[in-house]
């Protein structure tokens, strides 16, 4: 049972479908705790699908189904008995496009805590400040917490979304191409942020940007046509990959 302490999420022989289309084909991999794991691969290779199974975001897609074993600690992620609300509190997600709610900056961050915790006003304020600081956006927004979040720049919005995700106190942070809509400077800010957060959170990031995966992750999984072709340390994947397909992909030959 030593595994349980080092792995945040364990998948074994996981298959997933959208209707008749098999999106994931017997996936087995362990997401290590307190490390950044990157999923790379060409479009439609199943990396986002797997990420979305980690906190059951696929529940809203009626045709989505999965078999096999997917566990977070001792929680069976595929079981219909799993408390999805509690699961999503523990597994936060940040999306490709920054999606702040059309509310104030403060309300955005306070949204999650209000759902899950009973806090008084000062506790809530402290928590919001903590989350904004953690997400490295506090200095930029501290004077306008009541301003609409949609008035922030793209990079700030995305960091606000990260603050919103960590305000519920998750153990795992899923990031679905968090920088694909951002300019290089904002991307850098988010990458630095991930570097800061890695000591306390398990981060899983899906990215199309190979440099990003190589820069920020400890481990990298290469997906192709619904299968994990190679899962190894990032250094290995980007210097001496085992599989031919991985090599071709990281060299930019396809995908």
């Amino acid at each position: 049972m030593a595994n349980q302490s080092t792995n945040a999420i364990e998948a074994s022989n996981l298959n997933a479908w959208y209707g008749d289309f098999q999106a994931l084909n017997s996936i087995s991999l362990q997401i290590p705790k307190n490390e950044v794991t990157a999923f790379i691969g060409p479009s439609g290779c199943g990396k986002s699908t797997l990420l979305r199974w980690f906190n059951r975001m696929n529940d809203t897609i009626h045709s989505a189904s999965a078999t096999g074993d997917l566990r977070l600690g001792d929680i069976d992620l595929l079981s219909s008995a799993t408390d999805v609300v509690d699961l999503r509190r523990r597994v936060g997600i940040v999306f490709q496009k920054a999606n702040p709610f059309p509310k104030s900056i403060f309300e955005n961050v306070a949204f999650g805590p209000r759902l899950h915790m009973k806090l008084n006003k000062t506790e809530l304020q402290d928590l919001v400040e903590w989350a904004l600081r953690k997400a490295a956006v506090w200095e930029e927004v501290k004077d306008r917490l009541n301003a609409p979040a949609l008035g922030l720049s793209g990079g700030q919005q995305q960091r606000l979304c990260i603050a919103r995700a960590i305000a519920t106190g998750p153990e795992i942070l899923l990031m679905d191409e968090p920088c694909s809509a951002l300019d290089p400077a904002s991307t850098l800010a988010i990458e630095d942020l991930m570097d800061e957060l890695r000591s306390q959170y398990t981060i899983v990031i899906v990215t199309h940007n190979m440099q990003q995966a190589s820069r920020c992750s400890d481990k990298t999984a290469f997906f192709f046509e619904g299968k994990v072709i190679e899962f190894n340390s990032t250094e290995k994947i980007f210097t001496t990959p085992n599989a031919k397909q991985t090599e071709d992909y990281v060299r930019g030959k396809f995908g």
Binding site: V85, L87, R88, G92, K97, N99, F101, P102
Partner: peptide, 18 residues
């Protein structure tokens, strides 16, 4: 209403009603 907003709220653990 963009579905990304719904996803965002759902991702924070909001129930359908919330």
């Amino acid at each position: 209403v963009p579905s990304s907003l719904r996803d965002g709220a759902r991702g924070l653990g909001a129930t359908p009603w919330q």
